[in-house]
Amino acid sequence: MDGLLVAHGLNISFEIVVLALVSLGLAITLGLLGVLNLAHGEFVMIGAFSAFFVQSQGWPYLAAFPVAILACGAIGWPVEKFLIRPLYARPFDAILATWGLSLLLREMVEFFFGRGFNSVAQPIKGTVNILGADYPAFQIVVMLAAIALIATIVFWFLRSVTGRRIQAMVDNPDLAKAVGIPVDALARNTFVAGLCLAGISGVLLAPIVAVHPSMGIDYVLKSFFVLVVGGLGHILGLVIGSGVIGGAEATVSAIIDRTSGYSFVLILSLLFLWRRPNGLVAR
């Protein structure tokens, strides 16, 4: 088999998997809590900077995960309490507030780490030969880790008691309260969990992409496109949406150029919003 083709295939799969992971966090906050968190990308950025920070301290890469979770949790908890909770009933203001939050987080990271581009060394060096293509081993690990993470979360959501209670809360909030589910606390934990997930994705991505304060914008937009195309109702929508958006962008970018790839994805999302506002897999 053609090594180049395999490499392309792997690249596209990588894009899709990463996109699915980042979108999952956004899907949790938007699909379950109804808050479109425009600062979602900034939590990916914070995750990536956690990896950068950890490495600059000479700590092992794996230490970045607890650091990212701590950072996202420590920011996310007060954010939910003071910013999101008062605005659950005003979704339009919530967009604005999270847009302000994204600005604040960018500026804060810029304040501490500077505006420039940083790089994080890959903890696993070397390449693996897959069907004739030499592919970076670390990217394979990231892909597998992302798939495992998504699968675990979905499995947990469907099977655990807490997962069922979240479903119950989303399905019928009044009844959830009536049966004694502490809805406020559950919503807060869910929100913070979504942010931590973004942070974890950031840690995974840090060694592969350029780490800088404005890196989040791209992720929030693309995850939004994923949710537009895939719909919010079902995990299948997330997978399909990531496939369509990630696949289309990677393919068109490879064939023509990055601008065309991005335009294509944008136009695709516009068409979906226009003709199929509920996405491919409706609730």
């Binding site: 009844l175 309260k177 502490p182």
Partner: peptide, 21 residues
């Protein structure tokens, strides 16, 4: 939910069950 914890169980009229469970 606090009233539930104090021993009040409620059955609602509209949407009395979790349809998705």
């Amino acid at each position: 939910e606090k009233r539930h914890d104090l021993g009040v169980n409620t059955g609602l009229q509209e949407r009395p069950v979790f349809d998705g469970l």
